[in-house]
Nucleic acid binder design. Structure first.
Length: 577
RNA sequence: CGGGGCGUAGCGCAGCAUGGUUAGCGCGCCUGCUUUGGGUGCAGGAGGUCCCCGGUUCGAAUCCGGGCGCCCCGACCA
């Protein structure tokens, strides 16, 4: 490709809207352009990268027996009614001319299950692994980071169908390994962590995280055993604390705390510390009220409360319901005097705490010297708080958790019969029994990978693409187009490389050399071939974007050398191929 | 949805508190010359519904009201 005839609008200055380095570089390098919040154009360079990512995921899925298909982006709402997901607020909704409600697909479990329930009826037709690469639409409350969290984005999603638990587990493992190969081939270093299932639901599920400063997920990792989990999932062990004696604790006493609602305000007012305070949070699990207690300096993990009560959804109770239930405005809730039928749960940690401060369930008042088992019934103990760096590992005796940030590039789930049961996707087994199909679903953010790659591979000059996903393998830089000898050499090398099947971007533009070098570094093509003044000595320079150390070569040897370099770079990421 | 910030040429910004020439600067773009190994120098030029609607005023980019859009933090999120 001749750069003079190509479309690569690079930007010299950093667009004000971009915060993340990957976002800045992708905008500046002419890979993407914003159309609206969370809606992006993929410019030619960006689209070439996307197509390479797609190719890798196709090859690796095909290798484990996956079969590609293509589902509609336009999804009839009634299909989502079957699984109760038509009310989700991330759905884009529209109506056709007859007023029939549609949504834009945010994920495709219902569609694929619908196809399979009509076409699969026997155990002989499984196992089955179907996948697609599709545009997904999610009306995110807050798009951010460019294509990291977009409202319209490209996603690969695969779905497995099996006859029993073991077969489902085998399919899950096969995809799990295939994902590792995909990310490795893309040059994305990932870690696998346990995760929450969110709107997809189901059982076991894991996320693939690219560790990056700009990542939006908090990930906790054990320094000893390798356990890793998303912070919204990460379990904590029961420290089995011994309750301190309460015979010397003075009776609970009400104190006035005018306008002191937050932990910070209360501790300041009572001149104490947050770990002497117990927060009581009123929540709804599956719509039913529940109270959860954590220490004042901790954070409640709502999912943990949901799991403790075997629920499927959780939300904070709204202010007026709280007032109705406790008799006090938000900020003054406490465990003393709550309705006896209200489930009351407390984090394990509180087992070792007595003589604490809580809300009094009365406006502008708190209680001091509160003890559980004395002033209110012993609560149900559970793991309820959000894990933090420094906490003990839940999987091994000596490990400590540390915290990193990650970009979630993949998420795999064992769905079990959640969708097949709801949608009546049944099959007949060898014994003639009618059973629901066991499903798994496996998502990979294709467009998000583009951003993750830029986030993981860049320096102060620009992106440094791994060769497997680079928009071109080689950039051929003609330093001075006015120089006949240089031009002639560059043209000759260009044809030679093309003939060898090399993907080469030939920068023949009538630009200053400085512009070309800056652009080459910015767009990150891994191999740079510079045709400059060295042609006088019959030489050109070859250098890697990654280390920049130039190597001078006789012009005649350059194509073979470049070919060998490409091979080397590819072998690092695709050893088996 | 809560808090904060922003909206002026393709991009980055100034001007706005105190209303008043023809709305300005840098980059980019066009023309000519120059230069040719890291965003070259000189000269000339084009490009603006100052986000939108309404109001105040002799006069609004500037003041007031309403709306829309965008970014960041939080809530939320596969």
């Amino acid at each position: 490709m001749r750069a003079s005839r190509y479309f690569m609008p690079t930007l010299r200055e950093v667009p004000a809207e971009a915060e993340l380095i990957s976002h800045q570089l992708l905008l500046r390098g002419g890979f993407i352009r914003k159309q609206a919040a969370g809606v992006y154009v993929y410019l030619p360079l960006g689209w070439r990268v996307i197509r390479k990512i797609e190719q890798i995921v196709r090859e690796e899925t095909d290798r484990i027996g996956g079969i590609e298909l293509f589902m509609p982006a336009l999804v009839p709402q009634e299909l989502l009614d079957e699984t109760g997901r038509s009310g989700l607020d991330i759905l884009f909704r529209l109506k056709d001319r007859h007023g029939r409600p549609f949504t834009l697909g945010f994920t495709h479990e219902e569609i694929i299950t619908d196809i399979v329930r009509h076409a699969v009826s026997s155990y002989r037709q499984m196992p089955l692994l179907l996948y697609q690469i599709q545009t997904k639409f999610r009306d995110e409350p807050r798009p951010r980071g460019g294509v990291i969290r977009a409202r319209e984005f490209l996603m690969y999603d695969a779905y497995s169908f099996d006859v029993d638990e073991e077969a489902m587990e085998r399919a899950y493992q096969a995809v799990r390994d295939a994902y590792l190969r995909m990310f490795h081939r893309m040059g994305l270093p990932t870690i696998i962590v346990e995760a929450e299932a969110g709107a997809i639901g189901g059982g076991r599920n894991e996320e693939y995280m690219v560790v990056a400063e700009g990542g939006e997920d908090k990930v906790l990792q054990c320094d000893t055993c390798g356990y890793g989990a998303n912070a919204e999932r990460c379990e904590l062990p029961d420290p089995n604390l011994v309750p301190p004696p309460i015979n010397t604790v003075p009776p609970a006493q009400k104190v006035a705390t005018p306008n002191a609602r937050t932990v910070q305000e209360v501790t300041a007012f009572l001149n104490t510390t947050a770990d002497r305070l117990v927060k009581t949070l009123l929540m709804r699990v599956d719509g039913k009220p529940a109270a959860a207690m954590v220490r004042g300096d901790r954070e409640l993990n709502p999912y943990k409360l949901m799991h403790a009560l075997n629920g499927e959804s959780v939300e904070m109770m709204d202010a007026s319901s709280i007032e109705q239930l406790t008799g006090a405005p938000v900020g003054f809730s406490g465990p003393v005097g709550l309705p006896p039928d209200l489930p009351l749960l407390a984090d394990y940690e509180l087992k070792g705490l007595q003589d604490f401060i809580t809300g009094a369930n009365e406006a502008d008042a708190h209680l001091v010297h509160v003890c559980w088992g004395r002033d209110f019934p012993e609560p149900q103990w559970a793991d309820l708080r959000v894990a933090e760096a420094g906490d003990r590992c839940p999987r091994c005796p000596t490990g400590t958790l540390r915290e990193v940030r990650g970009i979630e590039v993949g998420h795999i789930f064992q769905l079990g019969v959640k969708y097949s049961r709801a949608m009546n996707a049944l099959f007949t087994d060898a014994q003639g029994n009618l059973k629901p199909i066991l499903m798994g679903c496996y998502g990979l953010g294709v467009s998000r990978c583009l951003a993750a790659i830029a986030e993981a591979h860049h320096d102060e000059h620009g992106i440094r693409f791994p060769i497997t996903v680079a928009p071109f393998e080689v950039i051929l830089i003609l330093v001075n187009p006015e120089d006949g000898k240089q031009r002639e050499t560059a043209e000759q090398l260009y044809s030679a490389l093309l003939q060898q099947g090399v993907e080469v971007l030939y920068d023949d533009r009538d630009e200053r050399s400085g512009v070309k070098f800056k652009d080459a570094d910015l767009i990150g093509i891994p191999i740079q071939v510079v045709v400059g003044r060295a042609v006088q000595d019959g030489q050109v320079e070859v250098r890697l974007r990654a280390d920049k150390s130039p190597q001078r070569l006789a012009i005649a040897n350059a194509p073979a050398h470049v070919l060998a370099l490409i091979d080397d770079l590819k072998r690092e990421l695709e050893p088996a191929r």
